[in-house]
Protein backbone atom coordinates (compact mmCIF):
# COMPACT_ATOMS: atom_id res chain seq x y z
CA UNK A 1 0.00 0.00 0.00
CA UNK A 2 1.14 3.51 -0.65
CA UNK A 3 1.50 6.29 1.90
CA UNK A 4 -0.91 8.32 -0.19
CA UNK A 5 -3.71 5.86 0.63
CA UNK A 6 -3.23 6.08 4.39
CA UNK A 7 -5.87 7.90 6.42
CA UNK A 8 -4.97 10.71 8.85
CA UNK A 9 -4.20 9.37 12.31
CA UNK A 10 -2.99 5.96 11.08
CA UNK A 11 0.44 4.60 11.88
CA UNK A 12 2.39 2.74 9.26
CA UNK A 13 5.82 1.28 8.67
CA UNK A 14 7.89 2.20 5.63
CA UNK A 15 8.85 -0.88 3.64
CA UNK A 16 10.40 0.69 0.57
CA UNK A 17 10.46 3.38 -2.08
CA UNK A 18 9.44 3.48 -5.69
CA UNK A 19 11.14 5.67 -8.21
CA UNK A 20 14.65 6.87 -8.83
CA UNK A 21 17.74 7.08 -6.69
CA UNK A 22 17.38 10.84 -6.41
CA UNK A 23 14.10 10.71 -4.57
CA UNK A 24 15.34 7.93 -2.33
CA UNK A 25 18.44 9.93 -1.42
CA UNK A 26 16.32 12.97 -0.61
CA UNK A 27 13.98 11.00 1.61
CA UNK A 28 16.79 9.36 3.54
CA UNK A 29 18.45 12.75 3.98
CA UNK A 30 15.28 13.98 5.59
CA UNK A 31 15.35 10.98 7.87
CA UNK A 32 12.88 8.58 6.27
CA UNK A 33 14.35 5.11 5.89
CA UNK A 34 12.76 1.73 5.23
CA UNK A 35 11.79 0.34 8.61
CA UNK A 36 10.86 3.72 10.07
CA UNK A 37 7.44 4.31 11.53
CA UNK A 38 5.28 7.14 10.23
CA UNK A 39 2.11 8.67 11.51
CA UNK A 40 -0.04 10.59 9.07
CA UNK A 41 -1.14 13.77 10.81
CA UNK A 42 -3.18 15.52 8.14
CA UNK A 43 -3.68 16.10 4.45
CA UNK A 44 -3.89 19.53 2.86
CA UNK A 45 -6.96 20.05 0.68
CA UNK A 46 -7.06 20.31 -3.13
CA UNK A 47 -4.24 17.89 -3.79
CA UNK A 48 -1.93 19.55 -1.29
CA UNK A 49 0.79 17.82 0.70
CA UNK A 50 0.63 15.33 3.56
CA UNK A 51 1.95 16.08 7.02
CA UNK A 52 3.66 13.09 8.62
CA UNK A 53 5.43 12.52 11.89
CA UNK A 54 8.62 10.48 11.78
CA UNK A 55 11.20 10.14 14.57
CA UNK A 56 9.57 12.97 16.53
CA UNK A 57 9.76 15.34 13.59
CA UNK A 58 7.14 16.64 11.25
CA UNK A 59 7.62 16.63 7.51
CA UNK A 60 5.39 17.89 4.73
CA UNK A 61 5.42 15.53 1.75
CA UNK A 62 3.91 16.34 -1.62
CA UNK A 63 1.41 13.82 -3.02
CA UNK A 64 3.84 12.88 -5.77
CA UNK A 65 6.36 11.90 -3.13
CA UNK A 66 3.79 10.15 -0.94
CA UNK A 67 2.69 8.06 -3.92
CA UNK A 68 6.18 6.56 -4.09
CA UNK A 69 6.54 5.55 -0.47
CA UNK A 70 5.44 1.94 0.13
CA UNK A 71 4.10 1.27 3.60
CA UNK A 72 2.30 -1.42 5.53
CA UNK A 73 -0.07 -1.01 8.43
CA UNK A 74 1.82 -2.37 11.39
CA UNK A 75 1.48 -1.16 14.94
CA UNK A 76 4.72 0.62 15.81
CA UNK A 77 5.93 0.85 19.36
CA UNK A 78 8.38 3.65 18.71
CA UNK A 79 5.79 6.37 18.17
Amino acid sequence: MKLLEVQPGEQVKVTGFEGGKGLQAKLTQHGIYPGDCLRLLRKAPLGGPLLVEVNQRELALGRGVAARIIVEVIPCESL
Binding site: G22, H30, R57, L59, A60, G62, V65
Partner: peptide, 10 residues
Protein backbone atom coordinates in the same frame (compact mmCIF):
# COMPACT_ATOMS: atom_id res chain seq x y z
CA UNK B 1 8.58 18.63 -16.56
CA UNK B 2 7.49 16.52 -13.67
CA UNK B 3 8.41 18.19 -10.40
CA UNK B 4 9.50 15.68 -7.76
CA UNK B 5 7.29 17.25 -5.12
CA UNK B 6 7.60 18.79 -1.74
CA UNK B 7 9.72 17.49 1.12
CA UNK B 8 9.82 20.15 3.80
CA UNK B 9 10.49 20.07 7.48
CA UNK B 10 7.86 21.71 9.71
Amino acid sequence: EDTPGLILEM
